[in-house]
């Protein structure tokens, strides 16, 4: 009883995964999708607009966007040189330094917040000096939010850019040097453009992470509306007092994150990657 398959779908059976795997994968997909579907289902759509445009929501939204963009900028300014050093220079203890710089990736963010306190808090390692010298108080300030977000988000960028730098053919930079380019010129005109896709992907991921930062922020910067209360914090707080607002704010954050992921897939992480970018 052999069936002849004809035409375009002749070899479809070859590519189709076994039924058991399909079924399990379907459960996994449902596992991820259901919470979001549930959320959309619970949102009081009728009041959505008014809930979103309450002064407290708008303040949190603006603060979140501002602080996360600052954190992204800081991550780029400090993260790219860090990735460069980690990728290019073999120095004793590099593995330990690398692990240290990426530690906040796997650390519970609350612990990160506590650690930040120990360093930059008023009684911290640098807290006194920062205040004496610059009159700066980081804890419970907007700058503290940026610091906490950068602490959590920068490793994403470092990891991506470092991988791209390692994957680069160094002979291209060598060629630039022999053509008369200084190290800095070669970096600017040759290396940077080559790692640009990875840099953008890393920056977008760092930004999304900063936008969603909760634990380190609330621990280190507290929860002051207008100063340190970002979106995730206000979602958490609204859950008690005003669940409808929490749901609407959640949907906004999901929309932003989903958009980020989709754009990454299309432009920088897509299958037909144009360069040896992020691997």
């Amino acid at each position: 009883m052999t069936r002849l398959r004809i035409g375009r779908n002749r070899s479809a059976g070859l590519q189709r995964p076994p039924a058991a795997i399909l079924a399990i994968a379907a459960i996994a997909i449902a596992f991820f999708a259901l919470p979001f579907i549930g959320l959309l289902w619970r949102v009081p759509w009728g009041d959505a607009w008014s809930l979103l445009t309450t002064p407290s929501s708008l303040t949190a939204l603006r603060l979140s966007i501002e602080t996360s963009l600052w954190a992204t900028a800081l991550s780029i300014v400090f993260g790219v040189p860090l990735a460069w050093v980690l990728a290019r220079y073999g120095f004793p203890g590099r593995r330990i330094v690398r692990a240290l710089c990426l530690l906040s990736l796997v650390l519970p963010p609350v612990v990160g917040g506590v650690a930040l306190f120990a360093a930059y808090g008023r009684r911290g390692l640098l807290g006194d000096s920062l205040f004496d010298w610059f009159g700066m108080r980081l804890p419970f300030s907007t700058a503290g939010v940026v610091l906490a977000q950068t602490f959590i988000a920068m490793p994403f960028l470092v990891l991506t850019v470092e991988a791209a730098l390692r994957g680069l053919d160094r002979r291209t930079e060598d060629a630039a040097r022999t053509l008369g380019a200084s190290r800095w010129y070669a970096f600017r005109r040759v290396t940077l453009p080559a790692i640009r896709p990875a840099l953008i992907a890393g920056a977008v991921m760092a930004w999304a992470r900063a936008l969603g930062e909760f634990g380190a922020t609330i621990t280190f910067a507290g929860n002051f509306p207008g100063r340190t209360q970002t979106m995730p914090l206000s979602v958490y707080l609204a859950l008690e007092s005003n669940p409808g607002q929490a749901l609407v704010l959640s949907v906004v954050m999901i929309a932003i994150s989903f958009g980020v992921l989709l754009s990454l897939r299309d432009q920088w992480l897509g299958g037909s990657s144009t360069s040896g970018g992020s691997r």
């Binding site: 053919d169 002979r171 291209t172 060598d174 060629a175 630039a176 040097r177 022999t178 053509l179 008369g180 380019a181 200084s182 005109r189 040759v190 453009p193 080559a194 640009r196 360069s275």
Partner: peptide
């Protein structure tokens, strides 16, 4: 003397052309 100051032209094995230019 650094490579950029030696004034030596090099053609490397395989292409080392700058892909972004």
């Amino acid at each position: 003397v650094l490579p950029e100051q030696r004034h030596i032209g090099v053609m490397f094995q395989n292409s080392t052309l700058f892909e972004n230019l």
